[in-house]
Design a protein around this nucleic acid. Structure first.
Length: 952
RNA sequence: GCGUCCGUGGCGGAAUUGGUAGACGCGCCAGAUUUAGGAUCUGGUAUCGAGAGAUGCGGGAGUUCGAAUCUCCCCGGACGCACCA
């Protein structure tokens, strides 16, 4: 009987075996066989979102990689936590359900089932007993619980961490903290210069307001991204730069709405600082830093030149207080609250027209008009605080309400936008920073200024007199000029010095203060959709809020037949949450005779994925989010040891999850500052896509290559392009077809063999046969083609084979440590190719090869391991080790260069010294020829590698 | 526009620290086996050249005994941000 490589039955057999024997169960502290001496290793894939289309071969790339790591770590003696679950709430699932006319609970369940089947078909070594899903009530109970933690805490500015809100109340009641006239909290010890009052004297409504103002989860009337076509609001992060929804590409409009917000901005500094503690790809860290967008500058008050309103200053934020003497006008965002008050009667019509235009202009139009500045004069003036100059106040949409104070001091000499605006509206311009000479010379030349011929004074004078003519603003650092008043001067001071001096002066004069500013906004946390976690919050009839008691959790999502949100093309229709259609017995709650209405918004998709890595540690705990001891064990010093996923989550998921984790850390629920110690971004799998003459995508599998370079669909030539594999480009390849044609071991190998995990690379089904042949060749090295005799011999391996084996162990081990799976495979292929010429495989070679292959191609490895007489799965066999002494060759090849060019090679004993090698080189006629007639200046010897003779 | 990363055979990619460029695989060529096809096996495969040899890592310069690797400029591509004061 022929023993052939029947991958289909082998793979089914072992998947069944692993399932039946619980092979990959991770042991927790307290479990019977738990070994506290074993090191833990938590390796995690990014939470997948099961779509209706199922997986394509691009999805498992990271899963295969983490599976290899997980299997390798088990063999190197680690206790490995390698779980999988499903993120299934949210817009995509709900949209899919609406399109198919089926309830999302059903479609989602189907999608999850299909995805689980596909994942299991890949032979991934997950501990499936820990599977979780964000949509099950025993999971989202804890999502709601975490929300209540946020709702029930505030950020203590002094301790720089979250504390229970009760602590704040205690401080307020004791008078340690007081409240100012804007109901902001002030330390009683630092009330100088502001009007304050004790908390105890406030009305109960005001007390409520003061407290609610501090909660990490709060309700606010904010301008939101309203997407009528989706019937919901979206987070800033979910809106593309051209003002459309990331999901579905629908138009998005700004409109004010009362929404739940999370105070992530309080954590901006720590989110930034703690990036230094994690082992993440630098580009991702950079993206997070840019997203947080920290800047240092000053808040400066400009008094109005108007006796009636001299008490109301215009506050601006600037990162360049050193240019204050050059501020020749001001600009407010069109939506700025002071615009109505400021506008003079003569300018009223013009201002109103402009504001209307700005309000109706979509984000796309605003983007398109960046090149041409627009704006209108309000008719009002302010006074520059450093020199008392009267400066006109304009409104313009190049100033955004969402950043800083929504108002700027314009310094046309040193800001490109202000420069362009000043040119267009003929506003004055005063240079107050002298650029460096290189800049001056270059710009003077570009602008066609008279050549100063290296005369620096002339160069400087020309710039000061003709700044406008230079065509660009100098926004770099330089030396102050034209910058002095009776009390302060920073003429001659460098930019950093000037910033310091002027801000200190402003502080002293009570005209401004130092300010750190962030681009990061608070996180908009409500959605008007059905398919999400309900908020555990009740609204009393007097408008106050009440958290649902912890023992009343979860607040379950009510079953609803009609769950779709009212959508519209009209941005003016007010948003109405889907849950407003729920029956009254869900919506209305009576507690102690009080009537409450439930919150009708639901949480966004990110909520469930913000903390799932914690639940995997203790997925069935009904008493706590996660058991403290288990959490300390698995999160260890640095949190998740390896977290693999795509770079598309760089700022959304990864920033949100870090924020939640820090809150949980502050409140003592988790033990590490950061959730993910090491992050690894896999590249994308790309594939060819084809478009017809209309530019529409054609299913890639229907395209044939008629002749080299000519691709046709139904005999019509089509255009070939290249992109991320997926539904939209119609170029997806499913793993299911790969399973039946080549087996999943082959698929796993191919995905790893394509190239380094972190880079994007093209899928090419044609190339798969290469690794499939490798597996077949391995099989044939164990089983002769004609018989079922196992070709494993008990004698020792010959010296060369043994040396190659140990070299291969070293290469594969090193490559696994640095996650270079492609080269690890290449090493094993080389070893196997060398084994083909042997009559039989010595057992030590056969077993070692199988063990090394096991993380990559576990099914065939288990089968061969069993064939060699082992009863147990190899999953916890020790990883092969190599003997350094066996790595040394009998003879080594030394490259001989003459003046850096390779002229020959000599073969010497591995311990040969430089003189021996030199002599051997000189004995070589070819090498000697190149040295002939020259004198040797220098000889460079790189031990074991190369000898370079420098002869002239 | 700004920022980050990347350009190596016909293709995917190797080259761990500045030290033999092209490992390994696909494809292709030749041979073996086979009724044929497929599968398998053996050998070859950067370019120019008959050859010795010369040239080659997007292009150009530089540092160095020696550069795919380090520096500068240019060209091309991918990703991110985008009037952020």
């Amino acid at each position: 009987m022929l023993k052939k490589y029947d991958f289909v039955s082998i793979e089914e057999k072992w998947q069944q075996h692993w399932r039946d024997n619980d092979t990959f169960r991770a042991l927790d502290p307290g479990d019977a066989d738990f070994d506290p001496k074993q090191k833990k290793f938590y390796v995690l894939d990014m939470f997948p979102y099961p779509s209706g289309a199922g997986l394509h071969v691009g999805h498992p790339l990271g899963y295969i990689a983490t599976d290899i790591v997980a299997r390798y770590k088990r063999m190197t003696g680690h206790n490995v936590l390698h779980p999988m679950g499903f993120d299934a709430f949210g817009l995509p699932a709900e949209q899919y359900a609406i399109e198919h006319g089926v309830h999302p609970r059903i479609t989602t369940q189907n999608n999850v089932d299909n995805m689980r089947r596909q994942l299991k078909g890949l032979g991934l070594s997950y501990d499936w007993k820990r599977e979780i899903s964000t949509i099950s009530a025993d999971y989202y109970q804890w999502t709601q619980w975490i929300f209540l933690q946020l709702f029930g805490s505030y950020y203590c500015a002094r301790e720089q961490r979250a504390l229970p809100i009760e602590t704040l109340v205690t401080h307020l009641e004791s008078g340690k903290l007081v409240v100012d006239d804007e109901l902001q909290i002030v330390d009683a010890a630092a009330t100088e210069g502001c009007t304050t009052m004790p908390y105890a004297q406030l009305s109960s409504a005001d007390k409520e307001a003061v407290i609610d103002h501090q909660r990490l989860a709060y309700l606010a009337n904010v301008p939101v991204n309203w997407c009528p076509a989706l019937g919901t609001v979206l987070a800033n992060e979910e809106v593309t730069a051209d003002g459309r929804s990331e999901r579905g590409n629908h138009p998005v409009f700004k409109r004010p709405l009362k929404q739940w917000m999370l105070r992530i901005t309080r954590y901006a500094e720590r989110l930034l600082d703690d990036l230094d503690q994690v082992d993440w790809p630098e580009p991702i860290k950079l993206m997070q830093r840019n997203w947080v967008g920290r800047s240092e500058g000053a808040m400066v008050d400009f008094a109005l030149d108007d006796t009636k309103h001299s008490e109301t200053p215009i506050r601006v934020y600037t990162t360049r207080p050193d240019t204050l003497f050059g501020a020749t006008y001001m600009v407010l965002a069109p939506e700025h609250e002071l615009v109505d008050m400021l506008t003079t009667p003569e300018q009223k019509d013009a201002i109103e027209t402009y504001r209307r235009q700005a309000a109706t202009k979509s984000e796309i139009d605003r983007q398109a008009d960046v090149k041409i500045k627009s704006g209108v004069f309000t008719g009002a003036y302010a006074r520059n605080p450093v020199n008392g100059q009267k400066v006109p106040i304009w409104i313009a949409d190049y100033v955004l309400m969402g950043y800083g104070t929504g108002a700027i001091m314009a310094v046309p000499g040193h800001d490109q936008r202000d420069f362009e605006f000043a040119l267009q509206f003929e506003l004055p311009m005063i240079p107050v920073v002298m650029p460096d000479d290189a800049w001056l010379e270059e710009q003077a030349h570009a602008a066609g200024r008279p050549d100063a011929k290296g005369d620096k004074e002339k160069l400087h004078a020309d710039y000061l007199a003709n700044t406008r003519e230079y065509g660009v603003a100098f926004s770099g650092e330089g030396v102050g000029v034209n910058s002095n008043n009776d009390e302060v001067s920073f003429d001659g001071k460098t930019t950093p010095e000037a910033k310091e001096v002027i801000t200190t002066w402003l502080v002293k004069k009570r005209l401004g203060r130092f300010q750190v500013q962030y681009k990061l906004r608070d996180w908009l946390f409500s959605r008007q959709r059905y398919w999400g976690e309900p908020f555990p919050v009740l609204h009393a009839e007097d408008g106050t809020l009440r958290a649902v008691d912890n023992n009343e959790l979860p607040v379950e999502l009510p079953p609803m037949d009609d769950f779709s949100p009212p959508t519209s093309d009209d941005p003016a229709i007010p948003p109405k949450p889907s849950l407003s259609r729920a029956t009254e017995d869900w919506r209305v709650v009576n507690i102690e005779g009080e009537r409450y209405e439930r919150e009708l918004n639901t949480m966004p998709q990110w909520a469930g994925s913000c903390w799932y890595y914690l639940r995997f540690i203790d997925p069935r705990n009904s008493e706590r989010m996660v058991d403290a001891e288990k959490e300390r064990y698995w999160m260890g010093e640095t949190g998740v040891d390896l977290y693999v996923g795509g770079a598309e989550h760089a700022v959304l998921h990864l920033l949100y999850a870090r924020f939640w984790h820090k809150v949980l850390f502050d409140l003592g629920h988790v033990s590490t500052r950061e959730p993910f110690g090491r992050l690894f971004n896999q590249g994308y799998i790309l594939a060819y896509a084809y478009t017809d003459e209309r530019g529409a995508y054609i299913p890639a599998e229907e395209v044939v290559e008629k002749e080299p370079g000519l691709f046709c669909h139904q005999d019509k030539p089509v255009e070939r392009s290249f992109g991320k594999m997926g539904k939209s480009l119609k170029n997806a390849v499913t793993p299911d077809t790969m399973f039946t044609e080549y087996g999943c071991d082959t698929l796993r190998l191919y995905e790893m063999y394509m190239g380094p995990l972190e880079v994007s690379k093209p899928w090419n089904t044609r190339d798969i046969v290469g690794v499939h042949r490798f597996l077949r060749r391995i099989w044939r090295n164990f089983y002769q083609e004609e018989g079922e005799a196992l070709l494993v011999s008990e004698g020792p391996a010959d010296k060369d084979t043994k040396r190659l084996l140990h070299k291969t162990i070293k290469r594969v081990t090193d490559d696994l440590e640095r996650m270079r799976f492609n080269t690890a495979l290449a090493a094993m292929i080389e070893l196997n190719n060398a084994l083909v010429s042997l009559e039989t495989l010595p057992r030590e070679v056969a077993e070692t090869l199988v063990l090394m292959l096991a993380p990559f191609a576990p099914h065939i490895s288990e089968e061969l391991w069993q064939a060699m007489g082992h009863q147990q799965s190899l999953s916890c066999e020790p990883w092969p080790s190599y003997d350094e002494a066996l790595l040394v060759d009998d003879q080594i090849e030394i490259v001989v260069q003459v003046k850096g060019k390779t002229r020959g090679r000599v073969h010497v004993a591995p311990d040969a010294d430089q003189e021996t090698i030199h002599a051997a080189a000189m004995a070589d006629a070819k090498i000697a020829k190149h040295i002939e007639g020259k004198s040797i200046k220098k000889v460079i010897y790189v031990p074991g590698r190369l000898l370079n003779i420098v002869a002239v």
